[in-house]
Amino acid sequence: MTKKMKSYSSEFKEYVAKMIVLDGHKMTDICNKLNLPYGTVKRWVGSYRDKQKNAEKEEQNQLLTASEYKEMYEKERQEKLEAQEEAEILKKAMHIFTQEIE
């Protein structure tokens, strides 16, 4: 008797791995629910975690230069100031509208 090997798409493998790693589902529950072999799912999860670690290392390896850091800092600072201004305007408008109602 020969067993027929099922092949799954990479999207499906990643979806299953994310359900376990990111959503916190138990591997045995997913295996039972989707009728998948435990060893196969364990391999998919291991592969997914390795990809995550490699992506993290790549992110850490990309250091910012001083000018890039300064640019990013100034941009975030400007966005924060704009958000504060908008909040102040909304507060004033809300105060004006609530006074008219009374």
Rank of each mutant, 00 (worst) to 15 (best):
N35C: 05
S47W: 08
I30H: 02
L90Q: 10
R77I: 13
Q62D: 06
N35W: 11
M94V: 14
V45Y: 00
A83W: 12
I20W: 01
T40H: 11
E85P: 01
Y38I: 01
L64H: 06
S67T: 15
P37V: 08
T28I: 12
E11C: 06
A55L: 13
E86Y: 14
S9E: 09
V45S: 03
K42Q: 13
A83F: 12
Q60H: 01
K51M: 08
A17M: 00
K53Y: 10
M94G: 01
Q52M: 07
S10L: 12
G24F: 07
A17S: 04
E74R: 02
H95V: 10
E11A: 07
E71D: 10
D23R: 00
I20P: 00
L22D: 15
S9C: 01
M1C: 07
G39Y: 14
F12K: 02
I89G: 05
R43Q: 10
R49H: 00
E11I: 12
S47Q: 13
L81G: 04
K3H: 15
E79H: 02
K26Y: 11
M94S: 06
P37H: 13
L90Y: 08
I89F: 14
C31P: 03
E59V: 14
E68K: 05
R77F: 15
K13P: 05
K92F: 07
Q52A: 04
T65R: 06
L63V: 05
E71A: 06
S47N: 12
E58M: 06
K51N: 01
A93F: 14
C31H: 05
K3I: 12
Y15L: 04
E14Y: 12
N54K: 15
D50V: 01
M19N: 01
V16Y: 05
A87W: 11
N35M: 07
E82P: 06
E56Y: 03
S10E: 14
V16N: 08
K42P: 07
V41I: 06
M94Q: 02
D29I: 04
E14H: 02
E56I: 08
S10H: 13
P37I: 04
W44Q: 05
H25N: 13
S9A: 03
D29R: 03
K26C: 03
N32H: 10
M94H: 14
